[in-house]
């Protein structure tokens, strides 16, 4: 029976290693807020690039399709609007991502804790033998 327990614990450790091991170790090697900040920073750079493309397409649409006057478009207010919208978009994405990455980190942390617990269990079984 003791052998059965040991095999079962080892199997669960192996399954964990196969599916999550490397990923979880990579995540938990950083502090929680560092992880969230770094992942969020990458995401924000991408979003800013995407936003610039969408803005360019929008104002081109105004100029080409709606035949708007270029000098009416290029004003201080326009740039202010673009910046405000960018900030709003970034805030929305920051909130979504911080929830998602925080959840990711928490899940990795709890899986690692379970892994450690099982490892200790395995050690105690080995000691008993």
């Amino acid at each position: 029976m003791r052998n059965y327990k040991r095999i079962k614990t080892m199997v669960s450790l192996a399954i964990y290693d196969k599916h999550y091991g490397d990923k979880d170790r990579k995540i938990t090697s950083k502090y929680k807020w560092d992880y969230i900040y770094l992942r969020g920073l990458n995401m924000r750079i991408g979003v800013v690039m995407g936003y610039i493309i969408v803005c360019a397409m929008y104002y081109l649409h105004k100029l080409i399709i709606q035949n708007a006057d270029m000098f009416e478009i290029i004003t201080k207010d326009t740039f202010k609007q673009i910046l405000i919208r960018l900030v709003i978009v970034l805030i929305i994405y920051t909130v979504i991502c911080s929830f998602k990455y925080r959840k990711e980190y928490k899940e990795a942390e709890s899986r690692m804790a379970l892994y450690e617990e099982r490892l200790e269990k395995l050690n105690s079984i080995n000691d008993e033998e």
């Binding site: 990458n42 991408g46 991502c97 998602k100």
Partner: peptide
């Protein structure tokens, strides 16, 4: 490419 890039940065990277 532009269409897929926008899909990727606004959604694909996060989910």
């Amino acid at each position: 490419f532009v269409f897929l890039f926008l899909l990727y940065v606004f959604y694909g990277r996060i989910f």
